[in-house]
Simulated scan of single mutants.
Amino acid sequence: MRAVTVSPRIPGSLCLVEDWPEPAVEEGGILVEALAVGVCGTDQDIIAGHFGEAPPGQEQLVIGHESLGRVLEDPTGTLHRGDLVAAIVRHPDPVPCLNCAVDEWDMCRNGLFTEHGIKGLPGFARERWRVQPRFAVPLGAAFARVGMLLEPTSIVAKAWEHIERVGHRARWDPRTTLITGAGPIGLLAALLATQRGLTVHVLDRNTTGPKPDLVRALGATYHTESVNEVDLQPDVLVECTGDPRVVLDSMCKVGPTGIVCLTGMSTGGRTIDFDAGALNRTLVLENTVVIGSVNSNRRHWEQAAAALARADHSWLDALITHRIPMSDFTTAYEVNDGTIKVVLDLTA
């Protein structure tokens, strides 16, 4: 079968292998026909050689962690042939740590977790894959075109869960939120914010393309100015760009007792002239909380599935700006500022 692979830590090693081995039964009892994988910045960083880890004893890593497939067989009786399914990306570490022991593997404390298509487990950019029942998330027929959005939605579902947990340290009655970045994570964060009844503002530099219309279709307000120029003191700010300047400005932007949730990843290596003392004063005097959020556990995947089921699927479909056949795989992984979500069609 065909698979898209890289040699981890070797830039430019992306290739399409025509005779990749069938998935081993040890990967899981549920055999799945791959339909599509979503492409994100993590994939591009792995292709650039920044990180990535092949499974033990292998030199190549099948990439792709935003999965969508159709069940071919399930002797475990968990699913039925023809069911749509997505696979949870992270698996708990074998020790396990305190969090992995209770299935909170997104909060792993010792770093021994594994992740499909990223760290020690084969990804889903191959024509067939297997999954264990505990890591299989069933999807209804309505998800046939957008099911690969489940993984990024699980990321923001976790973020909102943790925001709300922190919020309840005092009386919690948030009214407004600012989302920085209108990529897939930012737009999905905005979607979940509107489902919570919040007044939503989204900031992005793009003045053309689909982003402004997608934000307005949610009933949210689109901004193109800097964080400091937005005339707003939000109760919650979800930072989705990873840009160091935006991150720092966001910490100063929220109102008293506000919460800043960082979901974007900075690349590092960039220094900024910034008044750290003023930031410290603001955080302390206004009881501001800054949290980081990454990955998700099964509970968040299920929350994500429920959120997407409530969403307008034509809006979700519009997030996918490019659907690229597997035969043209290199195009799918090229960085393009005009895209929102690129999907690799594994059936073409």
Rank of each mutant, 00 (worst) to 15 (best):
272 I>S: 10
175 R>D: 10
252 C>F: 08
170 A>W: 15
173 D>K: 13
252 C>A: 15
148 M>H: 14
277 G>D: 09
158 K>Q: 14
253 K>S: 04
166 V>Y: 13
252 C>Y: 07
198 L>R: 01
209 G>K: 00
241 T>P: 03
188 L>G: 09
207 T>D: 10
197 G>L: 03
214 L>Q: 01
233 Q>Y: 10
160 W>A: 10
189 A>Q: 04
159 A>E: 06
191 L>I: 06
172 W>V: 09
211 K>E: 03
206 N>K: 15
149 L>P: 05
262 L>I: 15
214 L>I: 00
235 D>W: 02
245 R>S: 12
249 D>E: 15
157 A>Q: 12
206 N>A: 15
255 G>W: 01
202 V>E: 05
277 G>V: 08
166 V>D: 07
259 I>F: 07
263 T>Q: 13
209 G>R: 00
179 I>S: 03
198 L>P: 01
180 T>V: 15
269 G>R: 12
220 A>R: 00
247 V>S: 12
161 E>F: 10
218 L>I: 01
212 P>E: 11
208 T>E: 15
152 P>L: 02
181 G>N: 09
216 R>Q: 10
154 S>M: 05
147 G>K: 00
150 L>E: 03
149 L>E: 05
213 D>E: 15
160 W>R: 08
152 P>G: 08
236 V>L: 09
205 R>S: 10
250 S>Q: 11
151 E>L: 04
205 R>L: 14
197 G>A: 03
245 R>V: 14
157 A>G: 11
206 N>V: 10
275 D>C: 06
210 P>S: 12
227 V>F: 06
151 E>G: 02
199 T>L: 09
190 A>H: 00
171 R>A: 14
250 S>C: 12
216 R>F: 02
258 G>W: 00
254 V>E: 04
257 T>W: 11
154 S>A: 15
236 V>F: 02
200 V>T: 13
161 E>A: 15
232 L>K: 08
206 N>Q: 15
238 V>Q: 06
266 S>Q: 13
232 L>D: 02
150 L>Q: 02
151 E>V: 01
156 V>K: 00
275 D>E: 14
268 G>P: 09
241 T>Y: 07
219 G>T: 02
154 S>N: 05
167 G>C: 06
259 I>E: 03
272 I>M: 12
267 T>M: 14
261 C>H: 03
145 R>L: 09
266 S>V: 07
265 M>W: 15
269 G>E: 13
146 V>Q: 05
173 D>E: 14
266 S>P: 13
216 R>V: 04
201 H>N: 08
147 G>R: 00
264 G>P: 05
248 L>M: 13
207 T>F: 07
254 V>A: 06
175 R>W: 09
155 I>M: 11
171 R>K: 10
231 D>N: 14
162 H>R: 15
262 L>H: 03
244 P>C: 13
149 L>K: 00
277 G>N: 14
232 L>H: 07
264 G>N: 08
226 S>H: 11
245 R>K: 14
202 V>C: 08
203 L>M: 14
239 E>S: 05
261 C>R: 05
217 A>Q: 13
211 K>L: 01
264 G>I: 07
195 Q>Y: 02
262 L>K: 02
153 T>W: 00
205 R>W: 11
180 T>I: 10
147 G>L: 00
173 D>I: 13
178 L>Y: 06
204 D>N: 13
195 Q>L: 03
190 A>R: 00
200 V>Q: 02
265 M>K: 11
225 E>V: 14
161 E>L: 09
